[in-house]
Design a protein around this nucleic acid. Structure first.
Lengths: 347, 347
DNA sequence: CCAATATACTGAAACGTTACAGATTGCCAA
DNA sequence: TTGGCAATCTGTAACGTTTCAGTATATTGG
């Protein structure tokens, strides 16, 4: 079925959405001229240009996305690629808001492209690139050697990663300084007299696992504390697993007197595990945790927290992709955000 | 700049993305025939159809979205409209996952359309409808008399609402039975001997505020308990506000001995407020709260919880919009999800 | 005064798709 | 044999946009 309403010629009826043809008819110009006038092309007379733009504004002209996309290949779409199992709740919501904040006054739309446990993380990226569904892509859960980043570089698709890579390839990224976080956390615990520390790590394959572990290790030797290995869990594990294994850990004789946790959700489980073992937070053990919203101090006042701003990450990532699309140097679109101080509860 | 690579005729080179023309060339058929063969049109011979579909699969043909959209007006896009200030974190992430789960094996993409405090909630919807940016829309924070729903009905745009309306107009929705939730909560508190109850309500203008309040009120008189008014906050308020006002409330002589909270985040603040007032959860007061993930029992074992599944809501809403787009009766696309029992902590 | 050139504009084609209105073929009834 | 008809297939136009290759007019230089 043909969905047209107007019969043949120009629709001047007024109810249909205006197109370049409408504008051409109203101004008495050709569609080419109108098109160029709207994008401030130099070969259009100054008055004509103003006239066209005025009329366009008046009747609320908006370029048809499909027309532009078909002709130019430009989609005006940014895709955020998310793992539907392992992303943190707060991460998803904050990063989306951060991105939308930045693209709000651009023609860009944000599409969310999910992938699940069973899938190769490269799948959604391949799909996006093959179908040309986006002008730019944002990925998270970045790995040191990340096939997705490599793939997009090879195919010339602008993207930004949440987290760095380590492939000798340059691309935009935003990252939180987890090396500094772990270091600060260790020092804060040491300052409280804690010297047998355990770490609840990020997911093992990801880049920020390394930074966190290195920051932890370096600071340990700096302050002369020792590590109590706790490799059986990461923040990707379920609440129940973390809780159970923390309880096991805390019942051992060589239990830690300080724990550092890389995510707030894991921290809830860690504390539950500590209490399952009959120990008391702040007395038997201190815990430093990252969080992305102010929940942990409501949970237990004894917790020490460091804040990570995911909304900022979203904004920075969006800015980075847009910058790359606009032709800026990928190398100039990298940012690292410093952790806040380690914060105790403040009444 | 013309982005073409092939010069003039058919590109059989193999590197460019295949189009109908490519398929037509390879099969020796016309593009029209190929187009129809791919969508199982009846006037195409059975063998031809199979042949075309085989070749299409082989070379990985995927229809160009811009072409389809330009020609037919079909965008293959569902838009999720979100408030960037007041949506719950867990809501955003779960509902997105629920939606993507359903549209995963359809040609649909999900775009997130945000709006902020300052904006008229109708703005983003108007934008979507005017620009024809989506085939279907999902909105949340539904009001009894919702201008957005009315607007989309008037403009013939398929949509689904999270929460019901009350305008005498029929449209798809998914809702959680908050009337039942509040009732169950009251009964659970009554069973614990609590009979002076306060309610931390949903945001005042929204439909589920009414259901919650009515369920609360009806159950109160059913069990013969009384209400301690607590109208100064809703779950839209900040953690700090809720905490402060809860503390104020709990320091009064006529303080409640039971509190019902409509959201987990608010509950954290409520409990903090209770403890600020020097009272003890489970002894001086019991709290029943909704939650959408298993956090509250890690927080305080004394809490009573009711689970609301936002991922389910996302799936149901997506199914509803798709159903409407596919021509089903809007009235047949409504669902209400019953609350779980009121659950105490289980070891 | 003529040619060269700059300025301001324009039609046609193309992107990939689908709908419409045929075209071609084979088969059967008259 | 011919007309009619069903079964298959096809070319063209159109969706709205941008780019290419112009055209028309005024302006300048010699």
């Amino acid at each position: 079925m043909d969905r047209r309403v107007t019969k043949k010629g120009d629709d001047t009826s007024g109810k249909e959405r205006p197109t370049l043809k409408t504008l051409a008819f109203m101004t008495g110009l050709g569609v080419t001229t109108v098109s160029r006038a709207l994008k401030d092309a130099p070969e259009i007379g100054a008055e004509t240009r103003r006239r066209v733009q005025l009329v366009a504004k008046q009747i609320g002209y908006r370029p048809n996305r499909a027309g532009v996309r078909l002709r130019t290949g430009k989609t005006n779409v940014i895709s955020l690629v998310l793992n539907t199992e392992h992303e943190l709740m707060s991460f998803v919501s904050d990063i989306i808001y951060g991105v939308t904040e930045v693209i709000a006054d651009t023609p860009y739309h944000l599409i969310v492209t999910p992938y699940s446990r069973s899938q190769d993380p490269l799948d959604p990226v391949r799909y996006l690139v093959e179908t040309g569904s986006a002008d730019g892509v944002i990925i998270s859960r970045t790995q040191p050697n990340d096939p997705r980043a490599r793939y997009m570089l090879e195919h010339g698709v602008p993207f930004a990663t949440h987290g760095r890579t380590d492939m000798g390839l340059v691309h935009p990224y935003h990252d939180f300084d987890n090396y500094a976080f772990a270091g600060e956390a260790v020092r804060a615990l040491a300052a409280k007299g804690r010297n047998r520390l355990a770490l609840v790590t990020p997911p093992v394959g990801l880049t920020y696992f390394r930074y966190t572990v290195n920051g932890f290790a370096d600071a340990l030797s700096e302050v002369g504390a020792s590590e109590v290995p706790f490799n059986t869990v990461s923040i990707d594990h379920t609440i129940e697993q973390i809780r159970m294994r923390t309880a096991q850990l805390m019942r051992r004789d060589d239990r830690p007197d300080g724990i550092i946790s890389s995510a707030a959700a894991a921290t809830l489980a860690v504390v539950a595990g500590i209490e399952d073992a009959g120990l008391k937070l702040g007395r038997d053990v201190d815990v430093v945790s990252k969080q992305s919203s102010e929940v942990l101090h409501l949970f237990r006042r004894e917790l020490l927290v460091v804040n990570e701003d995911f909304r900022l990450a979203g904004s920075e990532l969006a800015r980075a992709v847009l910058g790359w699309i606009a032709g800026k140097e990928p190398g100039s679109l990298q940012s690292l955000s410093k952790p806040s101080e380690v914060l105790p509860y403040r009444g």
